[in-house]
Design a protein around this nucleic acid. Structure first.
Length: 373
RNA sequence: GCGGAUGUAGUUUAACGGUAGAAUAUGCGACUGUGGCUCGCGUGACGAGGGUUCGACUCCCCCCUUCCGCU
């Protein structure tokens, strides 16, 4: 148990929830945590300093999308994405594998790599695992993700099996090339690399995917391909299974998942890391988290509501502004409305994580989770 | 006062002698590793009266509205 990138400092009594420390070249951060999504080096309507202020410890950007614009050169010249954004947040970068869900990006893929198109220029982009590792290395985040082949929920089992095998082949090449790129860098300055499992909702495929990745000894393991239409139970069944196979001393990242109940359920199985566009996207569309459940702020009943979004929330938006005001701004498409709503949703989620961690430290996570629902 | 034009959802508009379509607004819903800030569903209209016609938002008459021009 001498893994230098992750150590567990607290375990819950009745569940598999845990508190860990993830060591990165930027410093150490506590798990579990939720990362706001900063696709293009910023969360939409919330700048990096605000993300730090609301208690987040990391954020994830998209290396592929950043490589199209502004390109890796300016980011590299400014000292990597962390300095580019001037943030103390730990920077994850995603490979762009997720963009295979999008018809505006994805053309085809095979063993050699994936063909994307640039949705603006229409130009084809041939992406290989090696090129992708180079991109992520140049962008210089603290943690890189493998290029994976993400299937769609509605794909047949056969197609998903094919995606698993491609993901495995690419993971081998990612790991090999990443090791080469990081070879001459002192250990404490190295970028970490996480593998990603696929396999949809099929336990046999998921197991195969994970066991292949475990052979490569990644710094952490991600469960990919969820949040795409599967049910809560389908998802959690796989999460549970993957955690049973995974060694305890590896950090586990459930990619793309951001609803409070999914996060808490996954934490109870021992998942450590989450990210999702959901809190910011929904905020912009007027759906806000509150301690009494989600509300749709654009509904007419809030037109003259002088109360804050959530009376028991201490965020900047709730401390200063009424539902009626923020609703009006959102309806008018005023950027400040999106800013306040996004800030609130991110704050709320960070607060849940904080409370979850306290509960784990007291060995009372089970009660906390049950109380939450 | 005279002449000309005009009138269709709250608003901007389309079409047609035979089920009035859209955009926007409005109401509700959706959104999970975000290039585009969106997408889905609902509500909602022929200025009034008369005539021609099997049938008129459409053609005719008249009244009214609004706009323009002239005195």
């Amino acid at each position: 148990m001498n893994n230098s990138t992750f150590s567990i400092i607290n375990k819950d009594k009745k569940t598999s929830a845990r508190i860990g420390i993830l060591y990165t070249k930027k410093g150490k951060i506590e798990t579990p945590f939720f990362m706001p999504v900063s696709t293009k080096a910023a969360a939409k309507f919330v700048n990096p300093k605000k993300i730090e202020e609301l208690g987040a410890v990391a954020t994830i950007s998209n290396a592929f999308i950043l490589s199209i614009r502004p390109g890796t050169k300016p980011i590299k010249k400014l000292g990597g994405i962390g300095r580019f954004m001037n943030t103390i947040l730990v920077n994850f970068t995603d490979s762009g594998g997720f963009q295979m869900y999008s018809k505006s990006f994805y053309i085809s893929s095979d063993e050699k790599g994936v063909i994307f198109k640039n949705p603006v220029s229409g130009e084809k982009i041939f992406m290989t695992p090696e090129k992708n590792m180079k991109l992520q290395s140049d962008i210089g985040g603290d943690i890189a993700m493998c290029l994976d082949r993400m299937p769609l929920y509605e794909d047949s089992k056969k197609e998903i099996e094919k995606a698993v095998d491609l993901t495995t082949i690419w993971a081998n090449r990612c790991k090999k090339h990443h090791d080469k790129l990081q070879k001459n860098i002192p250990k404490n300055k190295r970028q970490l690399l996480f593998g990603i499992t696929q396999g949809g909702i099929y336990p046999d495929l998921r197991e195969r995917s994970l066991r292949e990745l475990l052979k490569l000894d990644f710094d952490g393991y991600s469960i990919g391909g969820f949040g795409m239409g599967e049910t809560f139970d389908e998802e959690m069944k796989i999460v549970k299974q993957q955690k049973q196979i995974l060694p305890e001393d590896k950090p586990v990242y459930l990619m793309g998942i951001g609803s409070p109940n999914e996060i808490l359920e996954a934490i109870s199985y021992g998942v450590d890391i989450f990210d999702s566009r959901m809190p910011t996207m929904n905020a912009r569309h007027g759906e806000l988290f509150t301690s009494k459940g989600k509300i749709k702020l654009l509904n007419k009943k809030y037109e003259s509501d002088k109360n804050p979004i959530d009376k028991s929330c201490n965020c900047f938006a709730c401390k200063n502004f009424s539902k009626a005001y923020i609703r009006f701004l959102l309806k008018e498409n005023e950027p400040v409305g999106k800013e306040l709503a996004s800030y609130h949703n991110l704050y709320y989620l960070q607060n849940i994580i904080k409370e979850a961690k306290n509960a784990i430290k007291k060995g009372k996570f089970k009660e906390f989770k049950e109380n939450f629902a």
